[in-house]
């Protein structure tokens, strides 16, 4: 070995790398510890008795039912809209595309209360007020779904855009050359290839809808046994000082959210699709 080689390693040591990783670990670990601490605080605050009492309450059972029903409806509606938007925005270039792209992100960046307020004002518009005479929306169950949909759909669109962008367009084009119309190629090739992304988008939409509170409070109100969903329950129980019930319901939501996130992880990334050679 030449002397030059010996000098080349001078001052280079593992110690510095270890310090770097430790610093990163401490900074990131603080946040993870905070998350775990909040969950633990909920778990230790509540008792099985609190949970049982909460689950026995007719109001809370109604809220659980309405949450499950509205989130499922919201998810279906979101997919119905997000699949075509995600596909068109990825595969087609059109005038005003950048504007539409920015508009699609509005529900993600706007304060939730503003979305609720905007919906409330929109439904003051005479044609929609006339519609409400036959089909009540504001302060009724449809308003819950609509408020959840406004936000959840934006997340489903983001997820599906990422899915379609990651997919190679070639298989779809090959399907055209094999005799498929655009619609046939979409059903036979594009949708089956995007199935993981669709599942991810559905779980994202469902989870977002479950946690939605601001727009629902403004657009649907917080009427017990009527438009009360689980976040509304937490708010109502807190406002009357029933901290035990509020924490018990929060825990229910934590469990549901963790279950959904684990499902997303288990389904894998939506981005690893499309290329098989």
């Amino acid at each position: 070995m030449s002397p030059g080689t010996d000098r080349a390693g001078e001052g280079v040591g593992r110690g510095r790398d270890g310090l770097f990783v430790a610093a990163m670990g401490i900074l990131g670990g603080l946040y993870v510890a905070l998350l775990v601490a909040t969950m633990a605080a909920d778990v230790f605050y509540t008792t099985p008795g609190h949970l049982w009492r909460a689950l026995k309450s007719p109001e809370i059972r109604h809220a659980v039912r309405l949450s499950l029903l509205s989130c499922t409806l919201t998810t279906l509606l979101s997919l119905w809209v997000a699949v075509p938007i995600g596909y068109l925005m990825t595969r087609h270039r059109f005038r005003g595309r950048a504007l539409v792209d920015s508009l699609l992100d509005i529900p993600i960046v706007l304060p939730p209360l503003v979305i609720g307020l905007s919906l409330l004002i929109l439904f003051q518009w005479p044609p929609l007020r006339a519609l409400e005479r036959v089909f009540p929306v504001t302060y009724a169950v449809p308003s819950v779904v609509l408020a959840q949909f406004m936000v959840a759909c934006a997340f489903a669109v983001r997820t599906l855009r990422a899915t379609f962008e990651a997919m190679d367009p070639r298989p779809e084009q090959v399907a055209w050359t094999l005799g498929c119309s655009r619609a046939e190629a979409f059903w036979r090739v594009v949708l089956p290839s995007a199935r993981r992304g669709i599942v991810t988008a559905a779980t994202m939409a469902w989870a977002r809808a479950l946690g939605e509170f601001g727009p629902i409070l403004v657009f649907s109100g917080a009427t017990r046994m009527r438009t009360e969903v689980l976040p509304t329950t937490v708010f109502l129980e807190l406002s009357v000082g029933n901290l035990e019930a509020a924490v018990a319901v929060s825990l229910l939501m934590v469990v549901a959210a963790v279950a959904v996130l684990m499902l997303i992880r288990a389904r894998g990334s939506a981005i690893t699709l499309g290329r098989f050679a």
Partner: peptide, 27 residues
Amino acid sequence: PGMRGVGLVPQDGALFGHLTVREHLTF
């Protein structure tokens, strides 16, 4: 494209990931 009677073999094959080889041949 479908009316032209042209078969295409792209560079990377561009197979349909969810279909079996038999289903590719009958597509």
